[in-house]
């Protein structure tokens, strides 16, 4: 049985704008293994966000093939893409995106509601270390705590893939490392494939595979022989 969860072949994404054509992705090809931590690294404008959008079904490629577990998601319509995200994916954002008027418990419940077999919310809150704060509101939490709630929400529906878009972008070093550790723990505990999109090179050491991007192209793909723990990385 194939261990490949994602397979990309010559994927291109172009945008037409007033000033001409932008090649956000310019012929990208790679495979991602199940259960691994993948880091997509690149500066602003490198195409890494576009890559995340294509992999997560938020956007569709202009050309090329994108397969998820042998299903060509690049050809899905909106309804199919919604189902794909609902049944398979979890998301963590740089800006947390918590609902201000829902309690911490309810914010996690927002994610659990989508699944027919969600994880236990109280247990999840324990894992993220916020079991005592379940009745509080987001405005009462620090940035790091909010991100941990977001992680719990993303994981609540027990997704096969967890997408993390600059998860530590708004956090300081201590909070950032805590967040990354949590992501690693989830990967180890649940076998969730994690795809982290970041511009922070230090985070690359956490991944099983690192994909470097620039100007819409993959400039380098390498596997790390040694996976660092989140607490040990040098913060850039």
């Amino acid at each position: 049985m194939s261990n490949i969860i994602y397979s990309l072949k010559s994927v291109k994404k172009t945008y037409k704008s007033g000033s001409g054509i932008t090649h956000a992705l310019d012929g990208v090809s790679f495979d991602i293994q199940k259960g691994e931590v993948i880091v997509i690294l690149g500066p602003s404008g490198s195409g890494k966000s576009t890559m995340l959008n294509i992999l997560s079904g938020i956007d569709v490629p202009t050309s090329g093939k994108v397969k998820y577990l042998d299903k060509e998601i690049g050809k899905y319509n909106d309804k199919e893409l919604t189902s794909y995200r609902k049944e398979n994916l979890g998301f963590i954002f740089q800006s947390y995106n918590l609902i201000p008027n829902l309690t911490i418990y309810e914010n996690v419940e927002l994610g659990a509601y989508l699944s027919e077999a969600p994880l236990n919310i109280d247990e999840l809150l324990k894992i993220v270390g916020l079991e005592d704060m379940k009745n509080k509101f987001p405005y009462q939490l620090s940035g790091g705590q909010m991100q941990r709630v977001a992680i719990a929400r993303a994981v609540a529906k027990n997704p096969k893939v967890l997408f993390c878009d600059e998860p530590t972008g708004a956090l300081d070093e201590k909070m950032g490392k805590q967040t990354l550790k949590l992501i690693q723990d989830i990967n180890k505990k649940y076998g969730t494939t994690v795809i982290i999109v970041t511009h922070n090179p230090s985070i690359a050491n956490l991944g099983n595979m690192v994909i470097k991007m620039n100007s819409g192209k993959v400039t380098d793909i390498h596997r790390n022989d040694e996976i660092m723990n989140a607490e040990d990385i040098r913060w850039a």
Binding site: I58, T82, Y84, R85, L89, N97, L114
Partner: peptide, 13 residues
């Protein structure tokens, strides 16, 4: 808008 977008991303129809 943000909540709606978030819910769409998460998989709410």
């Amino acid at each position: 808008k943000k909540t709606i977008s978030l819910m769409k991303v998460m998989g709410y129809n």
